Simulated assay, not measured.
Amino acid sequence: MTAPLPPALPALRDQLLDPTGGLVYHLRAARHRRRLWAPFHAAVADWLAGWQPPRAHLAIVGPNAGYALPDGFLARFERVTALEPDPLARWLLRRRPDAARLRFDRLDCLRDADGLARLADRFPDAAILFSNVLGQVSAPAADWATPIARHLAGRPWASYHDAISTAVPPARSTPCSLPDAAALPDVLARFWDGGELPLADHATFGLGGPGPRRYAVWPIAPGRWHLVEWVARPAG
């Protein structure tokens, strides 16, 4: 079921070649999720097990098909609303055993600088989870941290997102937790040995302002690794 959207609000357009998913991603998932991705998915399951927002409604932005969401996660909430542009991902997500309370919404909350304000207004009672999407979609302004601080400060939200990606294999892959004072070089040193590391910066490191963060390495494909950051903030 998809909730109707007022004409004044920007709507998601169906995309099978979306930068956060699409056919290439589904093919990767079919090939790698059971083995190569399994340690990273275990880290996500651990993060989500510890995130217990005091809300009965979850709004989840960019869940794709829910490949990284542990079994039973959606059933923790009385209502779940997903914002997902990939029609194949929506088809797969609604077929999860824990998706009985799931509905879809067409709001495009990542298109422009006012998107997160519209997200907060449309779902005033919801905890919000950004499901590995913010590091894939460029921020409409200078960064994602500013609109999040402005529009989501009064509610519980969480995000796991790509901080950097690289073709250099990590020396270590054990997930870690670090205080808010940790700089990016300190985090990278937990996984990669010293020396210059060629990387792509996804412009999300330190999202959410002061507070602890957690990190894990995701081998998204052979020869490509992402450093994923987890941030969770309570209601203000």
Results as ranks from 00 to 15, higher is better:
163 A>K: 04
148 I>R: 11
131 S>A: 14
170 P>C: 13
123 F>A: 06
145 A>L: 10
157 W>R: 10
172 R>D: 13
138 S>C: 06
167 A>D: 11
183 A>S: 13
174 T>Q: 15
106 R>E: 13
127 A>R: 00
127 A>E: 10
113 A>S: 08
124 P>E: 05
162 D>N: 07
166 T>M: 14
152 L>W: 08
112 D>R: 04
130 F>W: 11
94 R>V: 11
124 P>W: 06
165 S>T: 14
129 L>H: 04
116 L>C: 00
156 P>G: 09
146 T>C: 11
97 P>C: 10
124 P>L: 02
101 R>N: 13
104 F>G: 06
112 D>K: 05
139 A>M: 10
146 T>Q: 14
164 I>D: 00
104 F>S: 08
110 L>Q: 06
169 P>A: 15
93 L>F: 11
163 A>Q: 07
171 A>I: 03
180 D>F: 03
133 V>H: 02
161 H>T: 01
173 S>W: 13
141 A>I: 13
124 P>G: 00
172 R>P: 05
100 A>G: 00
163 A>F: 12
169 P>Q: 15
95 R>E: 03
178 L>G: 04
163 A>P: 05
177 S>M: 09
141 A>N: 09
127 A>H: 07
94 R>T: 10
174 T>A: 15
104 F>C: 07
163 A>I: 08
104 F>H: 06
100 A>M: 01
160 Y>D: 02
145 A>Y: 12
146 T>E: 15
132 N>D: 04
138 S>M: 03
95 R>A: 07
147 P>A: 11
132 N>G: 03
126 A>K: 04
145 A>W: 10
100 A>I: 01
105 D>C: 06
153 A>M: 06
152 L>H: 05
160 Y>N: 02
134 L>R: 01
101 R>G: 07
94 R>Q: 14
118 R>L: 15
